[in-house]
Simulated scan of single mutants.
Amino acid sequence: MDLLTLEHFAGCLNETFMADIQGLEAPFVLVEAAPVQATLPGAQRTPFSLLFHNGSPLLFPQQTFRMRHPRLGDVGIFLVPIAQNREGFVYQAVFN
């Protein structure tokens, strides 16, 4: 796949990405895809941020997850847990 951009993910809002976590699959729902207000001279893409929600009561550590989506295929996404709510945890990925 070419360099991932915001446009790749914008059409996937509220869709599930399945993450491979030690041989088990965990669903992460993409709840936000937004540009990041930053200017990086010579950048190959406009920076953007993704927020995913996972309903597991377990907190997964920050790491690169191999995630599968029907249209995007398999992609490695570095997720960082940033919040907890009643339904689980919110994770963020930032692409520079």
Rank of each mutant, 00 (worst) to 15 (best):
M1V: 12
D2V: 07
D2R: 13
L6V: 08
L6P: 10
L6I: 14
E7T: 13
F9T: 11
G11Q: 10
G11T: 11
C12W: 01
C12Y: 00
E15Y: 02
F17L: 11
M18R: 08
M18G: 00
D20Y: 00
Q22M: 10
Q22P: 00
G23T: 11
G23Y: 09
G23P: 09
L24V: 09
L24W: 01
A26Q: 15
V31E: 11
A33G: 09
A33K: 04
A33S: 15
P35W: 07
V36S: 11
V36N: 06
Q37V: 07
A38G: 00
A38K: 13
T39H: 13
L40Q: 11
Q44D: 13
R45N: 01
T46E: 15
P47H: 11
F48E: 07
F48R: 04
F48M: 06
F48K: 04
S49M: 14
S49P: 00
L51I: 14
L51C: 06
F52G: 02
H53A: 12
N54T: 04
G55C: 09
P57G: 08
L59D: 05
L59W: 00
F60R: 14
F60N: 14
P61F: 03
Q63G: 00
Q63E: 11
T64G: 03
T64L: 03
R66V: 10
R66H: 08
R66Q: 14
M67A: 04
H69C: 12
P70D: 10
P70R: 12
G73V: 09
G73A: 08
D74A: 12
D74Y: 10
D74G: 00
D74P: 00
D74K: 07
V75Q: 14
V75K: 12
G76N: 14
F78S: 10
F78G: 02
L79S: 04
V80C: 05
V80T: 14
I82D: 03
I82K: 13
A83S: 12
A83G: 07
A83W: 03
Q84L: 05
N85Q: 08
R86V: 05
G88K: 04
V90G: 01
V90D: 14
V90E: 12
Q92S: 11
A93V: 03
A93C: 08
F95A: 12
